[in-house]
Every structure is written in C-alpha cells, then in structure tokens.
Design a protein around this nucleic acid. Structure first.
Lengths: 215, 215
DNA sequence: TATTTGGATTTTGGATCCAAAATACAGGAA
DNA sequence: TTCCTGTATTTTGGATCCAAAATCCAAATA
C-alpha cells in the first residue's frame, strides 16, 4: 500500500482535504481560508478551489458567494437521513447484485473481507475502513448499475468521519467481521432478501452506536 | 419570470452550460474546448472550469486528466437507471411528504400546477418543464428531508434533455396535467400509497414514451 | 453607552500568464 | 505502402496578478 502521489495537484489536494475533514483536522463549521490552506499544501489556490468544488458536490463542504467555503457539519438528523437514503439504495443494489452474482464478484468480496479481518486484528482503523468499503462496493458493483454505485459511494464519503469513530471500538470491529461473514454465506446461497435484511441491520447497528457515542 | 443575471460569473456560466447541454447545443461525447467556450460566454477559463467541476459532480460532464471535459451521453440504459433510482428515492419522499403535509405545502403544489396548465396551454415546453419541476419538488420538500430532495434534484438535472423531448408532444402534456390533478386529489385525501403508485406510473409512462421516441 | 458610519484590511472571484501533457503531423526506415 | 519517430502545435493544469465584495475596527453621533 505505498500511496504514490497522484498525477495532478488537484487530485492530491482532493485526497488531502478528504483526510483533513474526516479526521477532523478541518473542523465542521469552520471557514476555509484558501490562502493558508494552499500554502500548507504547497499549491496555488486554483487547484484547491476546484477540489473544493467537487467536495461541495459531495456535500462535504458548503459555499456561499463571496463568503467562501466552509466544512459542512453533519447533524445527527443529517446522519440519519444519509443512512435512510443508503437503506433505500443499497437494498436495491444488493437485490440486483445477488441476481447476477459472478464468481469473480464473490471472490472480490472475499478478498476484501480477508483484508478487513487483517486490519481489525492489527487494530488499524483507517485500513479497516478502507477494506470495509471495498467489501461492500465489491458486492454493489455486481448489480451492474454504475450510477447507483457512484451515488452510494458519495453517500459513504459524506459520513466517513463517523465511521472511523465506529471502528475505534474493539467490539464494533468484531461485530462487523461477523456480519460480513454471515453476509458472504447468504450471498453464496443466493439469498437476496436475507442479505438485504442482514445488511439493513448492519447499518442500523452502526448508526445506533454512533448516535449513542455522540448523543 | 424576468431572469436576472446571477451575481457571479460562475453561476451564470453554470446556467448557460446546463441549457447548452440539455438543448443539445453541446453534443454528447463532444470534447469541451475551454478557450472557445469561455470566449463565447465572455468570461475567463477559471469560472468556466469551476462550473464544469460542479457539472462533473452531477454526472452531466465527464473529465479525464490532461484530456479535458466532455459532455457525458446518457445511453438508454443510463436513462433507465436514473429512473430506477428516482423510483426508490421519490417513493420514500412522497410517503413521508404525505405524512407531514401542510396547507402551505399543498398550496405550493397547487400553485405550481396552475403554472403547468398555463404553460401547457401556451405550448411553452421550457416553462412547462420548469413548472412541472416546481410541482414535484413542492411535494418532496414536505418530507422534511433536505438531502434526499437535493439528490432527487440532481437526478432530474441529469435527464433534463429527455424531459423536454417528452413535453414536445401535445398528448404527453395533457397526460401530465391529468396525472398531476389526480395526484393533488390523493394528497388532499392523505392517501400516501395511492400517490406513490400514481407517481410511479407517471414516471414509467414518461420513460416508456421517451424510449419509443428514441429507440 | 449603544449604534451607526466610514474607511482600512482581508478574502474571495476572476483574468492573465506560464508550464507540462497530449495530439497532430511530417519525414524517414522497413 | 505502412509503421515508427521526432517535432510543432494545441490544450489543459497551475501560478500569479488584479478587482470586487465582505469583514473589521475606530471614530462620530444620538
């Protein structure tokens, strides 16, 4: 996992910004001073502004004319809304995925799950979040609905910060692993509704745990 | 409807670009030459590029590093996928909207519907598309789920071009008016499932008509 | 004292300029 | 002829510079 530098400054800035927001180095509500941030990242303001535009599209930052960008804070209501939308979209994605599940697709999910377990053992929260994402996306990809998957991906992006919090606790990591294993079982049996229900519970557990940690 | 000029060049460019794409003046697959387009709109390339970034986020244009932007073409499969996603999201939006429907919300929808009928009578396709959008959004807004509404709005954006085609035909316009009236009836009676079903049919009719016009 | 108003400062939005990557094309070798 | 190769041109990506809007702060007024 040697993370090489992206080919364009804009993509580099985009990654750095995502990290800064999800790790909380750029705090919610806080206005983004382009000059200083550009200085820190050692780029000009132009690629920074374009990266901010894409983040605005994803809902991670907001923008007001002549006032500039600011980190969008997710209220608890927002978090619930994102998960509601995910419920709607991911249920359909999983249903379709089971219908046209390939060996390659299943293998991709299994590989990702192995990485999840390795990361969990090492208590590497960041790596676990990444592998977990690959696991779920591998399944969604099988649905053959690229736009749907893209949408789901941006929803995940907007709640990255909270998921890291969730993985910080050992018993949550264990729970995720078990639910993933059960999911793989259901997929192998082509049990669509079972998988849909299980993953709905998977999400509900996460959102509930996060709520109790913050509320 | 005196369309005043937006306060910032970037927003102006954004509107113009949307129009250019949905009306087909910028054709799908065609690469976007920033210099010439900036010249035509009489702005520099900077606000143009930022506007393109937001359109990229909405899926209207694509981008490849060092190759530039190009208009994304919606295949028929893409169109179907967008409508599938809309089915999922709008069903939930309507369900919630009926549950917490206010007099003000209903009034907003009725006002929009009056505009739809006026535009249809004048055979003003563009005005009808706009009013139609206000009608549906007025209903969705009642759900009290701003992120969901925002998502639905971007999905509408990405298929604007096709909807104009649909409204071009007289009998489609009549059909829309009747379905809207029936929808308002169901809303007044707080019949959520009825409204959900009707609007699902509303969308299915549109996508089917568009398919037959193009296929 | 509280409020408003005018200008100085900061910060964003936009234009111009420069560098680097990709494309187009001409010429030469197999 | 066809394919490769090196170079000129085009086009994008990024840096710098300028203008306009917003904020801040102090002084004047009620």
């Amino acid at each position: 996992m040697t993370s090489r530098r992206p080919p364009t400054a804009q993509q580099f800035v985009l990654e750095e910004l995502r990290r800064a927001i999800t790790t909380g180095r750029l705090r919610p509500g806080e206005p983004i001073r382009q000059e200083v941030l550009a200085g820190e990242l050692d780029v000009s303001r132009v690629p920074l502004r374009e990266a901010l535009k894409t983040l605005q599209g994803e809902g991670l930052v907001g923008h007001r004319a002549h006032r500039g960008y600011f980190v969008e804070q997710l209220s608890l209501d927002d978090l619930r809304e994102v998960y509601l939308i995910r419920d709607l979209l991911e249920a359909e994605a999983v249903r379709r995925a089971v219908g046209r599940l390939t060996d390659a697709g299943l293998a991709a999910a299994e590989t990702a799950q192995a990485e999840v377990e390795r990361a969990a053992e090492a208590a590497d929260v960041l790596a676990m979040a990444e592998a977990n994402r690959r696991f779920h996306m591998a399944i969604f990809e099988c649905a053959g609905l690229p736009r749907l998957v893209r949408l789901i991906r941006t929803l995940w992006d907007s709640t990255d910060a909270y998921r890291s919090v969730y993985y910080a606790e050992e018993h949550n990591r264990q729970r995720v692993i078990e639910e993933h294993r059960a999911t793989l079982d259901l997929l192998r049996r082509r049990d669509a509704e079972g998988a849909v229900a299980l993953l709905a519970g998977h999400r509900a557990a996460a959102v509930q745990a996060i709520e109790s940690m913050l509320g």
